[in-house]
Structures are given as structure tokens and as C-alpha cells.
């Protein structure tokens, strides 16, 4: 393929970014927090993909996980509780040239932001969405979240959580237009990186639930899975992720799962033990909302002014004899 002068020049002088170019500050998370692993994975992805910091944006809501944009030397938007997705959709719609990442916690996404989450799946806008699921409200010091397991004692459920936990995977796979659903665990960094990378390369709403540990409030909860590799079901496929020999030797519980099979994906998603890890489902043919609503018109001040005027006019009480 031939390229124009601009493209050639950009390639000629494209800057090579190092990991440090994406790092900012020292994370304030607790030692051993899974957020650190997720941060390391996305920084590595940015470097490996050569993402330009000024063309990359991380959007978050509220919670421990939502501090992630602070530690990225890219654009970031630390939003309000449960509203990371609408903010990211707005960014995506108005700045299609940016790579958009979203980081949410389980309370942020699955409780107060649940409605946005459902519709964001249906809109299938091109973004990489990471649900940091530690199954507890950590920032506010141990309240039960929608994904807290039944029986979990917390400050809001001193007698133990009475409801079954919400399963973010089955919910996502149940929504029309779901196009990429994966699950990772924070304690297998190489697989986490591969999944984030696969999600980034999928054009559409790439949803990753990352099971992570909260060393402060639920320090032992994930130990059984952490210490027993057979309780992790590795999904291996050429259209998903491939296990290297080192990991394959440790994680022997594997299944060859074709991510185009949504029925099997739903079955796997329902499995709580062993924890499935890998790409459960992907469908590259689902259209993206921003493509369906693409408008070639430039968003000039005049155009925006005209649109606003038209909207305001709908609610204007006009003086008698002077209607719109």
C-alpha cells in the first residue's frame, strides 16, 4: 500500500514511547491491590501499541479503581459515580481519533452505573472497558457491592449478604449487541495483558471483567483460587488468547473455546468455580453506534450554536405574535 507524504512523515518521525512515558505518580493503592496489576497491563499495552499519550484517554467513575487515570500520563477523566460510560461515550462520539479506555469498579459499574452499563453494551461503541471487580466497596471501607458473594459479612451486611452475587459476565452476554466479553484475574499478569490487548484490538465495546483481590478488606477471599491453579479454567483459542508453555504447565485446566460460540460462552460465564479466564465471546460484525451515527459535518461554533438554538426554541415561551 502506498502512503501519502503526511503518513510517511509521521512514520518517519514517530516517537518511540517507553513505559515511563505513560507512568505518572506513585499509585496510592494498598500494597497487593489488584489495581496495580491492571495499571501495569495497560501501561504495557500503551507502550507496545505505540499509543500517543495525547491521543489516549482513560475515563473512570468513583472508587479505588477509578483512580487509575491519575497514574496514566495520558488524557484522563475522573468522573462521577456510575457515569464513566456515558462520559466515555461522549468522548468517543466527539473525538473518534482518541483511543478510549474505561476503568470502573464493581459498585461503580454494576450498581449505580448499571443502566449505563446495559445501554453501553447495546451501543457497542469502540472502547476498552475494564471492570475492576474486587467484590467490595473498598474506598468507603467495606460495604457489600452487587458482586459480593452471598454470606459476605460487611459493614452493610453484618449478618452476611443475603442475595446471590450479580454475575457481570452473564449480564453482559445477555444484552443485545454484546461484541466482546472476557474475564481475567489480576494474579496472572501475562494473561491479563493478553486479554487487555485482545480487547483493545477488537473494534467495539470490549468488556473485561477482572477478578481482583482486595488485600485490605477481603485479604483471603481469593486465596483458594490463587493457590490452586486447577481452579482457574483457561480458555485457549486462536481467536482468543494463547497460553505460553510456562503458563500452560501451571494452568493445566484448559478448554479450547471458540469465542464465536455465544451459547457455550454463556455456559462458561455461569461457571463460578473454576474461574474461567480468557475471551468468552467476540463478534466483530456488530456495528458501532458512532459509525451508525457518523456525521461528516464539522462541529463548528455555528453548527453547535444552531443546534442549541433549535433545542432551546422547543422550550421557549414566545411573546404573543412572535413564534418560532
Amino acid at each position: 500500500m502506498t502512503t501519502g507524504a503526511t503518513e510517511c512523515l509521521l512514520q518517519l518521525y514517530s516517537d518511540r514511547h517507553e513505559l515511563e512515558d505513560y507512568q505518572k505518580g506513585v499509585p496510592r493503592w494498598c500494597p497487593g491491590c489488584g489495581d496495580n496489576a491492571i495499571l501495569a497491563a495497560v501501561q504495557r499495552l500503551c507502550r507496545d501499541e505505540g499509543l500517543r499519550p495525547e491521543k489516549t484517554v482513560f475515563v473512570s467513575g468513583i472508587g479505588c479503581s477509578s483512580r487509575l487515570p491519575h497514574y496514566m500520563r495520558t488524557y484522563g477523566f475522573h468522573g462521577i459515580h456510575g457515569r464513566a460510560l456515558p462520559l466515555a461515550e461522549g468522548v468517543r462520539m466527539s473525538r473518534p481519533d482518541l483511543d478510549v479506555f474505561v476503568n470502573m469498579g464493581d459498585g461503580d459499574c454494576c450498581s449505580i452505573g448499571a443502566a449505563h452499563w446495559i445501554h453501553a453494551i447495546r451501543y457497542n461503541m469502540n472502547m476498552t472497558v475494564m471492570l475492576h471487580d474486587n467484590q467490595i466497596y473498598g474506598l468507603t471501607k467495606k460495604q457489600a457491592s452487587p458482586t459480593s458473594p452471598i454470606g459476605l459479612r460487611s459493614n452493610t451486611t453484618p449478618g452476611g449478604a443475603v442475595l446471590e452475587a450479580l454475575n457481570p459476565l452473564t449480564v453482559t452476554l445477555g444484552v443485545q449487541n454484546a461484541s466482546f466479553v472476557a474475564q481475567a484475574v489480576d494474579w496472572i499478569p501475562d494473561v491479563l495483558y493478553q486479554i487487555v490487548s485482545a480487547a483493545f484490538h477488537h473494534r467495539g465495546f470490549s468488556f473485561i471483567r477482572i477478578v481482583q483481590r482486595c488485600p485490605e478488606w477481603l485479604p483471603k477471599m481469593m486465596d483458594p483460587w490463587l493457590q490452586d491453579p486447577s481452579r482457574v479454567l483457561m480458555l485457549d483459542h486462536e481467536d482468543g488468547i494463547r497460553l505460553g508453555p510456562d503458563l500452560a504447565r501451571v494452568y493445566k485446566n484448559q478448554e479450547k473455546h471458540d469465542p464465536s460460540n455465544i451459547h457455550r460462552a454463556r455456559e462458561i460465564a455461569s461457571t463460578l468455580d473454576p474461574i474461567p479466564v480468557g475471551v468468552l465471546f467476540r463478534n466483530d460484525s456488530v456495528p458501532c453506534y458512532e459509525d451508525l451515527r457518523h456525521d461528516d459535518r464539522l462541529r463548528t461554533a455555528e453548527l453547535i450554536g444552531k443546534g442549541l438554538d433549535a433545542e432551546f426554541d422547543k422550550f421557549t415561551v414566545w411573546p404573543e405574535g412572535r413564534e418560532a
Binding site: 500494597p31 496495580n36 496489576a37 501495569a40 494474579w187 499478569p189 510456562d246
Partner: peptide, 12 residues
């Protein structure tokens, strides 16, 4: 090293 989750505990 491949299993390190970058928790900062040791470097601290």
C-alpha cells in the same frame, strides 16, 4: 517475575 502483579510491596 512473569507472575508479578506489580503491587509495589517489594520495591517499597
Amino acid at each position: 517475575t512473569p507472575r508479578c502483579t506489580t503491587c509495589n510491596e517489594c520495591v517499597a
